[in-house]
Structure formats: structure tokens, C-alpha cells
Design a protein around this nucleic acid. Structure first.
Lengths: 164, 164
DNA sequence: GCCAATTGCTTGAAGTTTAAAGAAATTGCA
DNA sequence: TGCAATTTCTTTAAACTTCAAGCAATTGGC
């Protein structure tokens, strides 16, 4: 171990251990919560997380959304959304309509049933989340929000630089 | 909108909007980084993230690990690990050996090839992660670590209470 | 108007994931 | 010992996911 004059561990120039540990902790935290939400959705409403997420995107708008919009917002592939939508139309939660000005485009909307069911689930979901973060003070939450925003910005900068 | 005497928004008793927003931000952040890591692993090493994760668990120990240990540490189902290990044994990265004292138990280890390939990937991986979090100061990282630990504890408390 | 490039979506193959059921082995306790 | 409960792992079906290839429609030069 390399020690400096104050007998404190000094990092090697290429030691990126703290960032790696941060990433693992972030991932663990998210996986844990995601698993919890997934279990609750299945137990209480017999619905999968991807379906809930998709409906959540659609609930934000009143007049529908294209498949591309959905895949961008959900950060998943286009083909993935095609399948999800297909199954949700099948079950009567969604409604799809081809655009009249561009016949490639499909507008997807929640049906009355879909919106009603989603609203019920969303209300419960919000309570689960509140309980999951229940030990955090308002200040903790504000700080986490701020730092995660910074992390997100950093990650986007990094991704963009790579693809550029 | 309900306003108090200081003309500041007051939260309704059941408003859990801040926790929900925190969760969405946490999820977005993780998904973003995970996608980035996934792309890099595919591009640079033609390997999937689940395989990398599994090898990462095994690299931490010298003498192997059981399937159950793996599934607990990776926080995925047992059957999932069975399939992943199967494919990695097939490709020569892993070695499986039945325990002599308990014939239900399989010890899984990295082969020489597996460990060598993993080490190469891990070194690059650490650099990607460092770059992804590059805009965060050491203090930001410490704070995030602390708050995420608190969030993790809170989520575990919540999950435990539910299953109890 | 023509047509190459782009855009929106679907399809197919391979892989990952879960939940649930089941098989095999071990453990613990009466 | 006997055997019920538990543990470890596998299997199965259905769903989810990505990537890449492909189809159809539109757009943007020319």
C-alpha cells in the first residue's frame, strides 16, 4: 500500500476503484428496488413491470404516442415495444391506429379499461415507492436527486463522446 | 394548489411525488449506464452483460462458488444461472465440478482462459465506468455512496417488512 | 417526376429472465 | 432409523430483450 506523509492511502494514477464501487452500489440499489416493484405488481395486479412501464408512458399523454416515441422514452429497442404493444392490444389495454398522414406511423393509446387499470396500479405503486425510500429524509432525497442528475449528465456526456 | 401562510406549496398528506421522481431518476441513470456498458462489452469483446457479471462474481474468489451463491449475489433466479453457466462452460470459460460431500452442489470456477479473458475485459470496463462518472468530484462520489447505502438499507427494510 | 436516403415499424434468431414445478440429495428430529 | 422438511439444482413455458435484416412509406435533392 502506498501511503502519503499523512499516512493516508493515496490512489494510484489509474485507480478507478471508487467509481466502480459507486456503479456497483447504484446497480444493486436499482436491482433491489426493481425486484420489489416487480413482485408487488405481480402479486397485487398480476402484471409485469414492462407492461406497467409502457402504460405509464402512455398515461402521461391524452392523445397517444407513436411506437418510436415509446421506445425512446422507455430506452428499449423498437422491436421490443412492438411485442409489448401487441400483447397489450390483445388484452384490451391499448388501442392502435394508423396515422392518416403517414401510413408508417402507428398511434398507440390507452383504452378506457387500460387507463382505469393503470390508474389503480399507479396509486398503489406510488405508495410502495414511498415506503421503499421511507428512511430517507427530505434533504437526503433532494441531495440524491441532485447527484443523480449530475451522474446522468456525466454518463450522457461520456456516451455522446464515444459515439461521436 | 394548496398554499400555506408563507405562500409555499404544501404537500398533501398522501403526496409521495418526490419519492417517485427519485425512483424514476435512479432507474433512468442506471438504465443509461447499463446500456452504455452493454454496448461497449458487445463492441469491444463480443460478450453479453450477464456473462460478464457472472464472471465478475467468480473472479472475486479463487476456489469456486456454488450455483446458489451465484444466484444470490447476482440477484437473479436459480434457473437463470443454470443456463448462463451452461453456456459459459460450453465456451470454455467455466469449469464445473460436483461437490464430493454433497452431490446436489456444483462448484463453478473460471478456467484459465475464462479468468484471463475476464481480467482483460475488467480492466477496460473499469476505465469506461471511470469516464462515465468523470464529471463527479470525489466528494460527489462519497456523498452518492453514502446516500445510496442509506437507500439500499431502506429498501431492504421495506422488502423485509412486506415478506415478513 | 425520379430515385437514393431516411424513417417507422416488423420479423427472426439468439439470448436473458422469471415463476413455477419437479427431481435429487441432505438434514433434522421424533 | 424413518421420514418429512429443506436445500440445490434443473426444467419448462411464457415473456422480455437485443440486434440485425428487411419491408413499406416518406422525404429531399436533382
Amino acid at each position: 500500500m502506498i501511503l502519503d506523509s499523512e499516512t493516508k492511502a493515496v490512489e494510484l494514477p489509474d485507480d478507478h476503484g471508487t467509481e466502480l464501487r459507486l456503479w456497483l452500489r447504484l446497480l444493486t440499489c436499482t436491482t433491489l428496488i426493481e425486484g420489489e416493484v416487480r413482485s408487488q405488481l405481480r402479486e397485487k395486479f398480476d402484471v409485469t413491470l414492462p407492461r406497467f412501464d409502457l402504460m405509464a408512458q402512455l398515461d402521461k399523454v391524452s392523445d397517444g404516442m407513436t411506437l418510436s416515441d415509446l421506445s425512446k422514452r422507455m430506452m428499449v429497442s423498437n422491436g421490443n415495444v412492438t411485442g409489448l404493444v401487441e400483447r397489450l392490444v390483445e388484452s384490451g389495454h391499448l388501442d392502435r391506429r394508423t396515422s392518416e398522414t403517414d401510413r408508417r406511423v402507428q398511434f398507440i393509446r390507452l383504452t378506457k379499461l387500460g387507463r382505469a387499470e393503470f390508474r389503480k396500479m399507479a396509486a398503489e405503486h406510488e405508495k410502495w415507492i414511498a415506503d421503499i425510500f421511507g428512511d430517507l429524509s427530505p434533504k437526503d432525497i433532494r441531495e440524491l436527486m441532485r447527484l443523480l442528475a449530475k451522474a446522468k449528465g456525466s454518463a450522457q456526456r461520456s456516451a455522446k463522446a464515444r459515439t461521436a
